[in-house]
Amino acid sequence: MTDANFTNVRCPIPSVDQSIVQLAHGGAGRIAQKLLDQVFRPILHNPALDELHDSARVTSESGKLAFSTDAFVVHPWRFPGGDIGSLAVHGTVNDLAMAGARPLALSMAFIIEEGFKIADLMTVIESMRNAADRARVAVVAADTKVVERGKGDGIFLVSSGIGEMVAERPILPTSVREGDRVIVSGCLARHGVAVMCARDGLDLDPVVESDSTLVHEPALALLKEGIEVHCFRDITRGGLATVLNEIASAGSVGIRIEEARTPVREDVASVCELLGLNPLYVACEGRFVAFVAEKHASRAIEILRDYDCSKGATDIGVVEGRAGQVVMKSLIGVDRVLDLLSGEQLPRIC
């Protein structure tokens, strides 16, 4: 028997680089367990999640629930003013509030690309936790999957939320009535511009920060104060023009707004101008539009302006005109149809 050459023997126990996410982290073994125990649970912990069961148990007082789901694939995952973790919480809580619901519980699915740094993952989860704390809601259920390098884009999140209805009347596009005032909660297009600048390394000074934030408090405050709100819609993908078209179409109403009253910050307008983008089609993540009975419009704006995230609330127009059509009075006073875009806005040549 010859001497065994122990230098060539490979230990069968996989050694895992603890600084990056690996495929094994998405499996069912000890390595995956360790990620849950050392990264996810310490940050997200709450009684419902800590039961470690297949489903979380949630209690509702009124029994009338709202349920919403959303996927987040923003690139880059971190951008001026936020990251994908806070964005997912904001998006889901805001969606619930748009139906007139107070958030009760969130779930979060993580799809992580092999090689994503654990430190970055912790940043995302911490930011998620902080946003959830601000919304007074917990992430009660979570799941993690790891995909091979090159088959994801760092990190994707899918979040769902359950909310308890606060609104007594249905907050729906079909509730919108002729004569309703159209109120936006603040300046437009910041999230889209911030992400675009971060994604393409557009080195602008000063940096435009995303408007990503929670808007449930001012929205629900309107309902608590008895304001006759007929519909809410958060102004996300496609910007104000797109959501107004959605409401006009779903509610079979006409909407007429004035360009001069639509709030766009000067620096954001400049970037849009430079790139050939129309800010009315650029996404926000912390703004909403409210359709309010005319008699309550001024009071609604007063209430909204009490909150930081909606202190720029302003009346931009009225529900009137041909059903399904959005019309904008241009800066120089001429009416034009404000249509849906045919696809994504693309930066122009010159």
Binding site: R322, V327, D335, R336, V337, D339
Partner: peptide
């Protein structure tokens, strides 16, 4: 197609038809 094309401009910013 183009963001500067005349046809796209006419399509996108068409005037309001009278009801």
């Amino acid at each position: 197609v183009s963001s500067e094309g005349a046809c796209a401009a006419y399509y996108r910013y068409r005037p309001v038809e009278s009801p």
